[in-house]
């Protein structure tokens, strides 16, 4: 029972991180119809910058704070250098060009920081564990991540649903040409959405750096899961991204923890461990393929669907 609770909390926390990356991806995808494979690079960058500055300034929190502007600037730079020229091209060109960006930046991370996982300062000023149930200590920092997962979606919801900028973003997602004809500088709106998405992904990476290993290529694993998230949730829908991110986080974490044990009821231990591990890795993809086959628009279809 306690084990299940811990795994549910871990799953939620993974889901929150996925949401932070997927939200930006989904906005960019929904508003600009642009597939950005290199979005995961922002996540990796956030983690590396937070770790480097954190060690240098001897405070994890300062590192986290500094990772935000760096992710923002790199996002803007990439948009200006590469992505801007791809908005009018087909999806295939977008996939390939951003794939090139991934190759470049992963290699740059390898050249700058090496291939081995990085040593990351632990967040100070927090109690090590909080007793959430009798005899069950859960790390306080991980609860902070879940807390972020409550605050950021509310903030995003307010931004998108209740502000003028949010209104323009929603209108742009439905019909960009019309919004542009009404006198809104759609290019600037795109750049703004893009920069904001990059910052969120960098934030997610910085948050994840004390919990998950910081290494080149860490962005891609998250990125692919995020595509699963936005496809399940419905492209361009923040609400869908939130629901799907938690779902994927829970399925993935619980699957990895529970499936090998569950299969032990049917198979002998060694093959149960093997098939269990394989099946757990596949679980989210099976869910996605099933959903796509029967409900291609996702759980909460976005404005374009």
């Amino acid at each position: 029972m306690t084990l299940l609770l811990v795994q549910v909390l871990n799953g939620l926390q993974f889901g929150v991180l996925l949401f932070l990356v997927a939200a930006g991806l989904s906005l960019v995808f929904g508003v600009m119809d642009f597939i950005n494979l290199a979005h995961g690079v922002q996540y990796m960058l956030g983690a590396y910058v937070a770790a480097t500055f954190g060690l240098w300034l001897d405070s994890f929190w300062l590192g986290l704070l500094l990772a935000l502007p760096v992710a923002l600037v790199v996002g803007l730079l990439l948009e200006w250098l590469v992505f801007r020229h791809l908005y009018r091209r087909d999806h295939l060109s977008q996939v390939l060009a951003t794939f090139g960006v991934i190759l470049t930046l992963d290699e740059a991370a390898r050249a700058l920081w090496g291939s081995a996982p990085l040593n990351v300062p632990q967040p100070g000023g927090l109690p090590g564990g909080i007793e959430i149930m009798a005899g069950l200590n859960y790390p306080a920092y991980r609860l902070v991540i879940i807390g972020v997962g409550v605050v950021v979606p509310l903030l995003l919801w307010f931004l998108v649903e209740r502000t003028r900028i949010g209104m323009l973003v929603r209108a742009g997602a439905t019909n960009a040409t019309m919004v542009s004809a009404l006198g809104v500088d759609i290019r600037r709106l795109f750049t703004l959405v893009f920069a904001f998405g990059s910052m969120l992904a960098g934030f997610a990476g910085a948050l994840a750096s004390p919990v998950f290993p910081v290494a080149p290529g860490m962005g891609e694993n998250v990125l692919i899961l995020c595509f699963v998230v936005i496809v399940i949730g419905g492209i361009g829908s923040i609400r869908g991204a939130f629901a799907a991110a938690l779902l994927v986080g829970l399925i993935d974490t619980l699957g990895r923890a529970m499936l090998p044990d569950l299969l032990r009821l049917l198979l002998d231990p060694s093959s149960a461990r093997q098939t269990g591990a394989a099946l757990a890795s596949m679980l989210v993809y099976i869910v996605m393929a099933g959903l796509l086959a029967f409900r291609p628009a996702g759980l909460f279809p976005g404005p374009r669907a």
Partner: peptide, 9 residues
């Protein structure tokens, strides 16, 4: 790949 990636782009 620092050269190869930009060439691809």
């Amino acid at each position: 790949r620092l050269v190869f990636g930009p060439l691809l782009v």
